[in-house]
């Protein structure tokens, strides 16, 4: 009999182990109680096994989030690996929930698990999708808002990957500015 090559037996290892989190907004519980770890994976095959098994973001209820973070990093500003960082933020209009949200989220996940930003991927902490009545958001979180070169590489590569037009720009905001803002707008540190 012809035996399959060893490549067909072995799962493809990822550079990092990743953890997928789910947030469901239940007002009777605390923020941390509403955040649940779904599963961890460190191979391409296990990533798809999880992805194919769960709801797409457009099917989630309002107030829900998915967060995919490197193992050991909690999806919150306060984590040591996040507290000096920030996020590339993409805001979607209501129509895009039907047209773009699920596709953008999948591309975001592929950028992360595939380490698409070369050496700059080391700055990536994770990604978050927020499903909200006013418009959904997808963000890539990075570890240090002062690492301009890595952040701009990630932002430009991300925009290209999503096939976004050159305008409007997408913007990067530090978690420090986001958490301390007094109005509805946060200072943009970088834009691409």
């Amino acid at each position: 009999p012809v035996l399959p090559s060893s490549d067909e037996y072995i799962k493809h290892p990822l550079q990092n182990k990743w953890a997928l989190w789910y947030f469901k907004n239940d007002k009777s519980k605390s923020w941390t109680e509403n955040l649940r770890l779904i599963s961890k994976f460190d191979t391409v095959e296990d990533f798809w096994a999880l992805y194919n098994h769960i709801q797409q973001p457009s099917k989630l209820g309002f107030g829900c989030d998915y967060c995919l973070f490197k193992d050991g990093i909690k999806p919150m500003w306060e984590d040591d690996r996040n507290k000096l960082g920030g996020r590339w933020l993409m805001t979607l209009n209501k129509q895009q929930r039907h047209n773009d949200l699920d596709r953008y989220w999948m591309e975001t996940l592929l950028c992360l698990v595939g380490e698409s930003f070369d050496e700059s991927s080391e700055d990536v902490c994770g990604a978050v999708v927020n499903v909200r009545p006013k418009g959904d958001k997808i963000a890539i979180w990075t570890s240090n808002c002062q690492n301009r070169d890595a952040i701009v590489t990630i932002g430009a590569g991300y925009k290209e990957r999503l096939c976004l037009p050159s305008k409007p720009l997408i913007s990067y905001q530090s978690h420090d500015d986001t958490s301390s803002k007094s109005g509805s707008t946060t200072k943009n540190m970088y834009s691409v």
Binding site: I10, E45, N52, S116, D118
Partner: peptide
Amino acid sequence: DKKQYDRDFLLGCQFITASM
């Protein structure tokens, strides 16, 4: 070696069941 996978490779694995 850094383990990088491009988009097409990853998508090609989506519906392949791993043998192990």
